[in-house]
């Protein structure tokens, strides 16, 4: 059972198997010593620290296998899965790509990935609004990742909570689609602050919109001056070469 990460673990499923049945995990507790006062129980546990401990384990494991892991975060429907399908179709022959899909319900996204031939594991978070490092650790163990491969973790569509949960990834990549409005980076700054790269998706739609790309990028840099930006379209393939170059540079740094 996971008290960890506040993930609504009672309903969490990894490839359809109930999370708390999938393993015999008992949370580590440190019960402070000292004189037990009458009817008082001392606990001393930082509920937020447990995720970081799991994330550290994941990072160690991924780094040891020289796996370059990315945590893809965005609001629902920005095109995360579409971008992954396109990425695998275009670059899957260059390096192995495995995917962990996070959604509250259904395994539709994992099925979309498996249809490309890539390995995918679906995590269903039930009530949970984000992936946490503990769930991802189990998914990583099931994936049998190849050395020097790329692991894409598609987080639950949510522009708020996933920002606070380290999964052990090398980078968070935030996807913002041009139909969402230019101002999202300043309305949800935590997410854009946590990300190393922003993929501005659905750029094929720009001719039909009043979207101000420069304003969106300026807002993103207002909250995170160092954030890199690539304009892409999962539909037309625009920007995919730049995205590949960014991944290749990251892989090189990881190996």
């Amino acid at each position: 059972m996971c008290t960890t990460c506040g993930c609504g673990s009672g309903e969490t499923r990894i490839d359809g198997v109930a999370h708390d049945q999938a393993h015999g995990y008992t949370p580590a507790r440190s019960l402070a010593p000292g004189l037990p006062r009458a009817r008082r129980v001392s606990i001393e546990q930082n509920l937020l620290a447990k995720n970081d401990a799991y994330a550290g384990e994941n990072r160690q494991r991924l780094t040891a296998a020289r796996v370059f892991a990315l945590n893809l975060v965005s609001s629902p429907g920005s095109g995360k899965t579409s971008l992954l399908v396109k990425t695998i179709a275009q670059f899957g022959h260059r390096f192995p790509i495995a995917v962990i899909e996070g959604d509250q319900q259904t395994s539709q996204d994992a099925e979309r990935i498996r249809a490309t031939g890539a390995a995918a594991i679906q995590i269903n978070t039930g009530k949970g609004c984000h992936l946490d490092a503990h769930m991802v650790g189990h998914a990583v163990a099931q994936l049998e990742l190849a050395d020097h491969s790329v692991l894409m973790i598609e987080n639950v569509g949510n522009l708020v909570c996933p920002a606070a949960f380290d999964l052990g990834e090398a980078h968070k990549v935030v996807i913002l689609s041009v139909t969402e409005g230019e101002d999202k980076p300043i309305k949800y700054p935590d997410m854009f602050r946590a990300a190393s790269l922003m993929l501005l998706n659905k750029c094929d739609l720009l001719p039909h919109l009043d979207y101000d790309v420069d304003a969106a990028i300026a807002y993103a840099r207002q909250v995170n001056p160092g954030i890199e930006v690539i304009r892409v379209s999962a539909k037309s393939g625009e920007g995919m070469a730049e995205w590949l170059a960014w991944i290749e540079a990251g892989r090189a740094a990881a190996t």
Partner: peptide
């Protein structure tokens, strides 16, 4: 941190 300290 969010630390649970003690229970009654």
């Amino acid at each position: 941190e969010m630390r649970v300290k003690e229970l009654e």
